[in-house]
Amino acid sequence: MIAHSVFFYIFSLIAIVSAVMVTVSKNTVHSVFFLILDFISISCLFIMIGAEFLGMIMLIVYVGAVAVLFLFVVMMLNVAEQKGQWFSSRWDGGTHIPVGLLVSLIIFFELIIVIGGWKYKPDLLNSLSLNISTEVTNTKSIGNVLYTDYILLFQISGMILLVAMIGAIVLTFRERAGVKRQSYVKQISRERDEGVDLVEAERNKGVKIDG
């Protein structure tokens, strides 16, 4: 049990320190690296309480895919150059401070509600209508709940994500003229007759091509 709590405190310390470092560090790429460290230590905490499925999904989805895209954007956009302008009046897009304040206030109130709800945790756990059995693996128990009782909500959230994805693609897609595209079918089905043209060239005149 001692080893268990030692590991718990190690992982939570890493998680908290790296979460602070995400906001504090000057270099944005370092921020993303700390975010990744935070995700990894939180998935370790998930595994320690026995939710190995959640921990692994956290690694695959957040670290393996989402954070890679974060890194992409941060590396490509050169955020460091714009950073100084965001809070100054020189930037013509208006200042970000009101929106940022609003979002952080909402998150703050949410946190307060969560911590307040901690007091009622035993009541909540007792009143659970789902019977969670400890005998089957947690992958199976999540699946049993997700694909039976909550199948509609699950499907709807999937559809919303799909619509959001397609919407993002449609909004950012622009057709450019003069882009050469390769069509495998066209290439393979090309015959000699259409590719080669035998021309009887006249003396001292030559042949005009592309005519």
């Binding site: 890679v68 693996t137 947690n138 992958t139």
Partner: peptide, 24 residues
């Protein structure tokens, strides 16, 4: 472990970081 294949998949998806970090 119960989620062995997920573990393999997760670790192999982390492999990209070594390359990104080295390149950056």
């Amino acid at each position: 472990i119960n989620v062995g294949i997920l573990y393999l998949f997760a670790v192999s998806s982390l492999g990209v970081y070594g390359i990104i970090m080295g390149g950056w």
